[in-house]
Structures are given as structure tokens and as C-alpha cells.
């Protein structure tokens, strides 16, 4: 019998702990498929961040390091410098990457640190139970913005790809989502390019994946995907914000 679908080698057998409908599982699979296809699992070292994905160190089959909250890209920098031939990636949520780890993110990017950053933006703190994230939308209700995010006091969301696309060290800054087969394919291509860039020594590549958090959004998985389309994509347009292989792409290549 032909095998037509199987778990990527770069995913372990450990059962994922993610909530039903959470898109972490899809993104894990995409990363693992890319590691398989590029044949780099054996020299890859992933950095798990603090947040829902902290236990990704159990799921990815490559060597893993768990970083303090916000420090994944500093840890990845240390790994990068110690392992010149390694394939180094971080897997981070929005609180980790764009709040407590903003400095690490911006500076790894501007150094052109030759790493791959997978950034899960679901506009909320998942693991701690649904607090406002740096990427929570204006008026979004969370545990710590019970009346909706008031931009007058809580400020505005951070658009990470747009911000990082201004930095010379960035090779790729692309925002994708995984709400449909088509978008999953685009996301995979982006992740693959982000790893290929690293292998070719092109510098810092970040793929931001707009993701859902049905549990903390208080929506069914299907409704959560619709909420993402209706609310997140308009605020965080999908597209390539920087691709060092192409010229003139600083303003985004909107789809």
C-alpha cells in the first residue's frame, strides 16, 4: 500500500498539547516539512520561547533549546555564533517576540543575524489565559482589556513585519496565515524561503503567521478563522514586506 500522507520526520511522536482549533499544530507541521525537505533536521537547532509553544521542544525532532521569555533571538544568536554550520530557528508568539522580547527581535534583525524566525501572531497571550498582547487589536476584549483595548491608554498594536522591513539586516519579512489550503501553501513557501535564505547566508528572515486562539477568543475554531479574516487581516495585511532578493519591496507586496 502506498503511503500518501505521513507525519514529517522532524516532528516527534509526542502528542501536541495545543487546544482544539489552534493553528500552532499546522505551523509546527509546516516547519517540520520544510526541515525534512531541505534535509537539515540533523543540523537544526530550534529555540522554543515562553508561551503556548514553549513545549515545542518536545515536538520538533531536531535539537532544541528553551529560552527565557522574550530572549529566543538572543539565544539563537548565541547558537548561531557557536554553530556556524547549524540551521537555527526560533518559534515565538506575539507576547514573546513583540512585547518582552522587542529589543532582542529588533537587534537580531538589524544585525542581520542569519537565523529563521517563525512568529505566531494570535493577538493574545494564550498560555497565561487571554491577556492583551502587543498585537491585540483596538477595541479587542481580553482579560486585561475587559472593555476593549482602548488605544488612548493601552496604545496601538505593533505591526512587526512592517517595522522590521525598514532594517537593512532583514532578508525576508513576510506575513502569512493558515486559514485555507491556499494560504497554508503560501505559508509553507514562505517558511521554506526563510530557511533557504539562512542556508544561503542571506541574513535574518521572519515569517509572521496570523493565527487563531479559539479558547481565549471565546470562539469555535471555525468562527475563530472567520474572526481572523474579518479583523486581523485588515489590520495586518498579508504579503511580503521585505525580500532582499527583490528590489523596491519596502512598502509591501499586498495580495
Amino acid at each position: 500500500m502506498d503511503v500518501v500522507f505521513k507525519k514529517p520526520h522532524a516532528l516527534t511522536d509526542a502528542p501536541l498539547h495545543y487546544c482544539p482549533g489552534c493553528t500552532h499544530g499546522i505551523v509546527h507541521r509546516l516547519v517540520a516539512e520544510v526541515l525534512d525537505e531541505l534535509g537539515v533536521e540533523g543540523k537544526a537547532v530550534g529555540v522554543a520561547s515562553v508561551g503556548c509553544s514553549v513545549m515545542s521542544y518536545n515536538y520538533f525532532g531536531c535539537d532544541m533549546v528553551q529560552a527565557p521569555h522574550g530572549r529566543a533571538q538572543a539565544v539563537a544568536t548565541g547558537l548561531r555564533r557557536a554553530l556556524p554550520d547549524g540551521v537555527i530557528f526560533t518559534y515565538q508568539g506575539d507576547g514573546d517576540l513583540a512585547a518582552i522580547g522587542t529589543a532582542e527581535t529588533v537587534h537580531a534583525a538589524t544585525r542581520g543575524e542569519n537565523i529563521t524566525v517563525i512568529f505566531i501572531n494570535n493577538a493574545i497571550y494564550g498560555m497565561t489565559g487571554g491577556q492583551m498582547a502587543p498585537t491585540s487589536l483596538p477595541n479587542q476584549i481580553t482579560q486585561t482589556t475587559p472593555y476593549g483595548r482602548d488605544v488612548n491608554s493601552a496604545g496601538f498594536p505593533v505591526r512587526v513585519c512592517e517595522m522590521l522591513s525598514t532594517l537593512d539586516g532583514v532578508a525576508l519579512a513576510q506575513r502569512v496565515t493558515v486559514d485555507s489550503v491556499k494560504n497554508v501553501k503560501i505559508a509553507k513557501a514562505a517558511i521554506k524561503k526563510a530557511f533557504q535564505n539562512q542556508i544561503e547566508g542571506k541574513g535574518y528572515s521572519i515569517v509572521e503567521v496570523l493565527s487563531t486562539c479559539p479558547t481565549n477568543w471565546g470562539l469555535s475554531p471555525v468562527d475563530a478563522l472567520q474572526w481572523l479574516r474579518d479583523n486581523m487581516i485588515p489590520y495586518y495585511p498579508l504579503g511580503v514586506y521585505k525580500d532582499a532578493d527583490k528590489r523596491d519591496n519596502m512598502k509591501g507586496d499586498k495580495e
Binding site: R71, R81, A103
Partner: peptide
């Protein structure tokens, strides 16, 4: 070797963490 001036003390120690996790003296 590597000399890297980090963006902060916090980043510096975590770079040490990463390098040490890779098995080198840092």
C-alpha cells in the same frame, strides 16, 4: 572567535546561554 556587543545585558547573557547550549565555552 566571537566578540558581540549585545543590545542589552539581558541579551548578552542569553547569547551566552545559546552558545553554551551549543556546547562551546562562552
Amino acid at each position: 572567535g566571537t566578540y558581540l556587543q549585545a543590545e542589552s545585558e539581558i541579551a548578552a547573557i542569553n547569547m551566552v546561554l545559546g552558545a553554551s547550549a551549543a556546547g562551546v565555552r562562552a
